[in-house]
């Protein structure tokens, strides 16, 4: 198992190198410095900016320097970490302080990452857990009552739920659950928008987006999981289990669920990278300073170092989650041998 994980990690290195190469090339097609400074900038300012990022160096040098920043985790450094590395000043000091943002003066990529990851995760992770739990239970019930009234009701509401636009939920959620509730009942339970750190504030700011995200995802997931369950319930081993006198409940939860976990895991794992990245829509509408917004903001403000680093980090997370998917497979399905 461990050798398998190690080997997969080694295999993904060339893939990652390729991704980084592509990313850096793409971001340099249009001169990022010119884009940031605009047409009116002086030649001196242009050159200074270029040198400060090391963009005047050959591409190969930049490539390896960028890789170094990734490998040494320089990208998560924040400026208040004291500089101890070198005395000769200049670039060395600058670099060991982390990678500075262009548009947000004095802030580093590390700071932006650290500050935006918590709000993102505090919405995406609970939303995933709720969605997973609720939709698996509904799917099981639905498969159990297949073709009968409870199944039909659940499936109709699932289709209904997923047919309504995300934006409708956001707008009505904000209006009814947050605004009207506050007005009529003088209850300050849901915030219309905004974010404050801390567990005590979580329900106030994050619960509404989490619920919306859950409701939206549930329709799709329930239908998918139900299809998986229905398919499993038609398998031969289910008849065998019934023929040996297993109870219906035991067949569902012992025999069927473990088999159904295989496709379910694939689906959940494929959403993992987006947990970190956050939901851009929700973060925009609820004004939550998460990762998705950080990336979007950096793109709109031509903040080249932030964009480049965030994309590279996401790509890394994506690769790791692909490996994790395979590892989970092996844990659930004995037919998959990781050797």
């Amino acid at each position: 198992m461990w050798t398998y994980i190690l080997r997969r990690l080694l295999y993904s290195i060339p893939v990652y190198l390729g991704i980084v190469l592509l990313l850096m090339a793409c971001l340099r097609v249009n001169d990022p410095v010119a884009g940031f400074l605009g047409k009116g900038a002086s030649e001196e300012a242009y050159q200074a900016k270029k040198e400060s990022m090391g963009l005047d160096r050959p591409f190969v040098v930049q490539y390896f320097d960028f890789l170094r920043q990734l490998v040494t985790f320089e990208f998560i450094k924040v400026p208040d970490e004291e500089v101890t590395a070198s005395e000769d000043g200049g670039a060395a000091v600058l670099r060991s302080r982390g990678i500075e943002s262009w548009s947000q003066e004095g802030r580093t990529v590390g700071q932006i990452l650290r500050e935006s990851i918590i709000p993102s995760i505090s919405i995406t992770v609970p939303a995933l857990c709720f969605t997973l739990l609720i939709s698996i239970v509904i799917a099981l019930l639905s498969a159990y009552y297949r073709g009968r009234l409870p199944d039909k009701l659940m499936m109709v509401s699932a289709v209904l739920g997923m047919s309504i636009s995300f934006l409708v939920y956001i707008i009505f959620g904000q209006y009814w659950a947050a605004y009207l509730l506050n007005q009529k009942l003088e209850l300050e339970f849901f915030a219309v928008q905004g974010y404050e750190p801390g567990a005590a504030n979580w329900a106030h700011y994050c619960l509404l987006p989490v619920l919306i995200s859950t409701i939206v995802a549930m329709g799709y997931d329930t239908r998918f999981y139900r299809a998986v369950m229905v398919e499993e319930s038609g398998r031969d081993y289910i008849i065998t289990a019934r023929a040996k006198g297993s109870t219906k409940r035991k067949i569902m939860f012992v025999h069927m669920l473990k088999n159904a976990m295989i496709p379910i895991i694939t689906r959940v794992m494929s959403t993992l990278p987006f947990l970190v990245m956050g939901s851009i829509l929700l973060e925009m509408y609820f004004n939550i300073p998460g990762m998705g917004r950080a990336l979007l903001d950096s793109i709109f403000s031509n903040d080249f170092p932030v964009t480049q680093m965030l994309v590279a980090v996401f790509a890394g997370i994506f690769l790791v989650s692909v490996i994790l998917t395979d590892v989970f497979y092996a844990l659930v399905d004995p037919r998959v041998r990781l050797s």
């Binding site: 398998r235 031969d236 081993y237 008849i239 289990a241 025999h255 473990k258």
Partner: peptide, 8 residues
């Protein structure tokens, strides 16, 4: 196919 593949 009559045996459950995920249990011994």
């Amino acid at each position: 196919t009559a045996l459950n593949p995920v249990y011994t």
